[in-house]
Computed example of a mutant assay.
Amino acid sequence: MSAESLERRTRSYLSNNVPQIQDHGGYFEIEDVDEESGEVTVAIGGACSGCGIAPMTMRAIRKRLPDEVDEISKVTIRQAGGPRAAVMPSKTREMEEMEEYEDYSPPF
């Protein structure tokens, strides 16, 4: 499988199974696909920053994407940079560490 195909399958999964990102004013971009190792890096930004469910969305993507796209072994999620950068990345990182989010599973 080519890296382009793996990227296309990753993008398709996120677009079709996590529409809340775009529906709520956020966005995602696939920053890197390592075909050999199966590692994928996804950046999220826009309205995702500081959103109360962003940490749960990020955790769900990290967990579910490898289950849905067989060739993926690891998913790294990071805050997007540039003009569409997340507004409050430190708050989102803090929220990811909160125990309240440990067992929550978003409905996607």
Rank of each mutant, 00 (worst) to 15 (best):
S5L: 12
I61M: 05
E4L: 13
G38Q: 11
T57G: 02
M56A: 15
G45A: 15
A80F: 05
S90E: 12
M95Q: 12
P89F: 02
P83N: 10
P19F: 05
T41V: 15
A3D: 15
R78P: 06
L6S: 12
M58H: 01
A54Y: 05
E68R: 06
S105K: 08
R11P: 00
Q20P: 01
D70A: 15
D67V: 05
R64Q: 12
K63E: 05
R59Q: 12
S90K: 09
E4V: 08
Q20S: 13
T10Y: 09
N16W: 04
A60C: 06
R78D: 08
Q79D: 15
Q20A: 15
A43L: 13
T92R: 07
E36L: 07
I77S: 04
E31H: 06
Y27G: 00
S15E: 11
M95V: 04
G25H: 07
V18F: 12
R93N: 13
N17P: 08
A3R: 14
E97C: 01
I21T: 05
P66Q: 02
K74G: 07
S12E: 15
E4K: 15
M1I: 09
I72Y: 00
A60T: 12
A80C: 04
D23R: 13
E99M: 06
A60P: 00
D67Y: 00
Y27D: 02
G52Y: 06
C48E: 04
E31Q: 14
R64I: 03
M1V: 13
V18L: 08
A86N: 07
G38R: 12
Y101L: 03
I44C: 11
T10F: 09
L14M: 08
I72T: 05
E7C: 01
Y101K: 00
P89W: 01
T76E: 12
E94G: 08
E35W: 05
V75E: 08
Y101H: 11
V18A: 03
S37M: 07
D103C: 03
G38T: 13
V69A: 00
G26V: 09
M56G: 08
D103H: 12
G81W: 01
R84C: 06
I53A: 11
P106C: 00
